[in-house]
Each structure stands twice: as structure tokens, then as C-alpha cells.
Amino acid sequence: MTEMNFKDQVVVVTGAGGVLCSYFCEEYAKAGAKVALLDLNEERVLEVAAKINQAGGTAKGYKTNVLDKENIEAVHQQILVDLGPCDILVNGAGGNNPKAQTDIEYHQETIQEDVRSFFDLDASGIEFVFNLNFLGTLLPTQVFAADMVAGKAGNILNVSSMNAFTPLTKIPAYSGAKAAISNFTQWLAVYFSKMGIRCNAIAPGFLVSNQNRDLLFSKTGEPTARAEKILRNTPLERFGEPEELIGGLFFLTDNQKASFITGVVLPIDGGFSAYSGV
């Protein structure tokens, strides 16, 4: 999907080593953008950047720790040399941690010793999840939005989640962190409103990724009970595909087509958020 034109715009994507964000990078490049791929996994972003360049696009990968502001600033300076000032920032870095999730959906009077309940959640795991999702969005924004302020134009696109609307069972830290991202998106939209900078977010529904594969499928590839429950509560009765996020992503970061839209969190979820379960 490359109908929208981002020719010569510099797009910076964090979490670009992941399944979804690497796909975002490829699509922005097809639409004419110069793409900077940021991720802690240097090998992966270099691989994706090489693929984009071989296909005729313009991209470069950078090893980046989104929780280290000094590192982000150093990467920013290199991007300025390599590609130019940032026009669009996609904050895609995020994730969950097993130490921050319960093994059970409901507390019971009797719980086996090897089952993690709410009372067994690890503080360091929760801290990791909040830092990665929230600080991992805030810090890159502090660095790259400076380019937008200087040019009095730009777009910030955050990646929220269905969890931000209604928390899912078992993953309280991730749900809370994504709720913070939605709130922060609205805050940024107001804060930068006088600078020609728009800030929006997409809230993907259920897509299969490396982060949730073990929750959705057994080792033999069969849908888990949790996956079956998700599908029952998704009116379109299937998981989404990465390409189905691109329309919302491109629309919200297009200065012509979405020029009066800021502070929006767009669900792309197959109807999950609209269905009460009844």
C-alpha cells in the first residue's frame, strides 16, 4: 500500500527490528521516505535496511537503546548527517516481560506453588515493562521532536494497544503502560499544537508477533484457549495482518489528508473494541 507520498521525508522508527515496525519501515521506503531504523538489535535493523536499499529505497539501521538518552542523541546526530532532520517519528519500541504477567486470569482460593498470581508479580519486571513502553517513547520524542520544533512541522506517531482501552487479563503492567502511551499521545498533541506538530497513535488489535506467539499458540501450533477467546470477541473472527495497519499509519502521518487530526488513538482491531461480548 503506497498510495500516499512521503517522498524525501525522513522517517525515524524505533523498535524497527520487530515484525511490525520493520514492515512499517519497508512501506514508508516504498512511499519515497528516507527511513532510519532504530533498535537494540543492530544485526536485525542492518538486515532490514539492506533489504530496503536493495529494493531501491533509502534506509539505514542504527543500534539504539531507547532507554539511554545519550545514546539516542548520538544516533540523532548521525541521522542528521546521513539522512537529515526527522519529519516523522514512529515510536514503535515496546514489549512485555513474563515476570510482569500472571499465569491465571482470576484469583482462586487455592493456587499451586508454581503458578504466578498477582502477589508474585516481580517489581523489576513491571519496572522494565513501564520503562520500555513509556520512557522508550518519551525519550526518543524528546530528542527527535527538536527537529520538528526547529522546522515548525512534523508528525509523531505512537503505538498504543487494545489493552489501553480495556486491560486484558494476565498482563497488568503491559496494559497499564499502553494506557499511559494513549494518555501521553493526547498530552503531546496539546503541548506541540502551536508548533505545527501533530501527534497521534494507532492501537492495534490482535496480530501474531514474537511477543505474543507463546500466549496465542501451543508448541504444536494449535490456538490456545486465550487465542480462541480473542477470536470469539473479534467480530471479524481472525487475527490482523501487518499490512492492515499501514492505512491508519500512513493516514495519520500524512500532512494533507490528516492535517486537522491530532490527539487521536485509532483502533485497528477487527471490531474488538466495539464488541461487548454479548
Rank of each mutant, 00 (worst) to 15 (best):
residue 132 L to E: 06
residue 144 F to R: 08
residue 155 N to G: 13
residue 160 S to E: 00
residue 127 E to D: 14
residue 133 N to Q: 03
residue 155 N to S: 14
residue 160 S to H: 02
residue 161 S to V: 09
residue 126 I to M: 14
residue 139 L to H: 11
residue 161 S to C: 06
residue 134 F to S: 10
residue 138 L to R: 06
residue 122 D to C: 09
residue 137 T to C: 06
residue 151 G to R: 15
residue 160 S to Y: 01
residue 144 F to G: 08
residue 135 L to D: 11
residue 157 L to V: 12
residue 154 G to A: 03
residue 147 D to F: 05
residue 129 V to L: 05
residue 156 I to N: 07
residue 139 L to N: 11
residue 140 P to I: 05
residue 157 L to T: 14
residue 139 L to V: 01
residue 143 V to D: 06
residue 146 A to Q: 14
residue 150 A to K: 15
residue 123 A to R: 11
residue 145 A to N: 11
residue 133 N to H: 00
residue 151 G to Q: 15
residue 139 L to P: 07
residue 135 L to G: 11
residue 132 L to R: 13
residue 156 I to H: 10
residue 123 A to V: 15
residue 122 D to W: 01
residue 124 S to A: 13
residue 135 L to R: 15
residue 129 V to G: 00
residue 133 N to A: 01
residue 143 V to L: 10
residue 150 A to E: 12
residue 121 L to S: 02
residue 121 L to Q: 07
residue 154 G to C: 04
residue 159 V to H: 08
residue 146 A to L: 12
residue 148 M to W: 06
residue 131 N to P: 10
residue 122 D to H: 01
residue 142 Q to S: 11
residue 158 N to M: 01
residue 157 L to F: 04
residue 123 A to I: 15
residue 126 I to V: 15
residue 126 I to E: 01
residue 142 Q to C: 09
residue 151 G to M: 12
residue 144 F to Y: 10
residue 160 S to C: 00
residue 156 I to E: 03
residue 121 L to Y: 09
residue 154 G to P: 07
residue 160 S to K: 04
residue 160 S to L: 04
residue 155 N to I: 02
residue 149 V to K: 14
residue 149 V to N: 03
residue 134 F to M: 13
residue 131 N to W: 04
residue 136 G to I: 11
residue 139 L to I: 05
residue 159 V to M: 15
residue 121 L to D: 05
residue 126 I to R: 05
residue 156 I to M: 07
residue 137 T to W: 05
residue 145 A to S: 14
residue 142 Q to M: 13
residue 128 F to D: 12
residue 136 G to T: 08
residue 147 D to V: 02
residue 150 A to R: 13
residue 150 A to L: 09
residue 135 L to V: 10
residue 143 V to N: 10
